Simulated assay, not measured.
Amino acid sequence: MPRRSQKKPNTPPSRLTWSPQTELIGLEFELVPEKDAYLYPQYTIGLHAWFLDQVRSQDPELSAYLHDGESEKPFTISALDGEITSSGRQVKLSASTSYRWCVTALSRRVQEWLAQWVESLPSVVDLRNAPLKIRSCQIAHVPTTYAELLNSEHGETLTLKFLSPTSFRRKGHHFPLPVPVNVFHSYLRRWNDFSGMPVDQDAFLDWVDSCVLITRCQLTTMKVLAGKKGAVTGFTGAIEFGLTKEASHQSEFQQLFYALGKLAPYCGTGHKTTFGLGQTRLGWTSEVVQDIPDVQSMLAKRIEDLTEIFKAQRKRTGGERADEIASKWATILARREMGESLQVVAQDLGMPYETVKTYAKLARRALKIQK
């Protein structure tokens, strides 16, 4: 474990403690801009990068694993929750207004780092010239373990609400519906990677397909920005799952079904959960939970439209590589049209500047051909 650092001056007080045996925990930060702050629409990339940089400064080995590890990511971060509005080509955060930001840990190693980090939190979250003061930090999801989730009490149904747009990958495309197999496959992947109690995936998902019912749902879909590349169509809202009478014939799967539902607030649902998508809570809501600023929706729609154009032009080559290039071209060109510099785009995408510059030229040329 990395050496504990001394508390820095002018950092927010923190008396958060939890058992060293903890495997799952969620923290909520209250962030306040001292003056009006203007962020680029894909600001969650900055939150993601800032968090990993915090890890890197204290534990480079853990940071490398979180960034490059081939397993499921053992953490999530949310977007900012609060009064966010469009301002031209940017999103605006209002001075002296509180914004909530959540970080969760899905493994003992990550929670150990969080326990050390909260003892000496920095004074601000710095999002590219938009410092957000950390006013407070508190526990949002109680410290627990996978075994405790498995053995906890439960009701007859399982109800989940999706606070931020949620989507899955299916046959190379985004799939914005909470079909039970997709939902529980999402949770099972994290469970099998981090719980130390792996379950046969095919057998469990066959049981889900046969025994899990949707008893009610209320959903809204929207186009949103998704991490470093492209845009997705995601859903928000709520869903209630129930079980058939035959479900009890495999009681171990029935027990896991409820445990995975309680895992959802920690691990999120679907993909891009380390960039703010798929934030999930237990319970029901009849309201649209998160408003997406117009500028974000506009950019997401532009990226999606450009991606389809570039995919159509490259259909002869086909394959995942062609689709990936089309998505990168679309993202780079759309963000450049929004006034962002290619240097900033290159930094966000983790690509060499010259490559991004070349892709921008090729995308503009391809767009002229299409017209």
Rank of each mutant, 00 (worst) to 15 (best):
V295M: 01
G230R: 01
I45L: 11
V344S: 11
G268F: 05
A247C: 08
G276H: 07
E240D: 02
E70A: 10
F204P: 05
P41S: 05
Y43G: 02
A346G: 02
S120Q: 10
K171D: 13
L333V: 04
A300I: 10
A49S: 13
A140V: 00
P293Q: 09
S78A: 02
R169V: 09
W18D: 03
P180K: 05
L263R: 08
Q370M: 11
D36W: 00
T236I: 12
D193W: 09
F168Q: 02
D193I: 00
D68A: 09
E240A: 08
D206W: 05
F75Q: 06
E240F: 01
T144H: 01
E246Q: 15
W117F: 15
E83S: 12
T317D: 13
P13N: 09
Q313K: 12
I214V: 15
G46P: 00
Q255C: 09
T85W: 03
P74Y: 06
K73N: 06
K133W: 07
L362K: 12
H173A: 15
R100Y: 13
L299G: 02
A226N: 04
Y266F: 14
Q279F: 08
L263H: 07
S94N: 10
Q343S: 15
L62T: 02
L114K: 00
G69K: 08
R4A: 13
R4V: 11
T269L: 07
S5R: 15
K92Q: 14
G69D: 09
D206C: 05
Q58V: 09
S297W: 03
R15W: 09
L243A: 03
K272E: 10
K368H: 12
T285Q: 10
Y43K: 04
D68F: 11
T244V: 06
L225S: 08
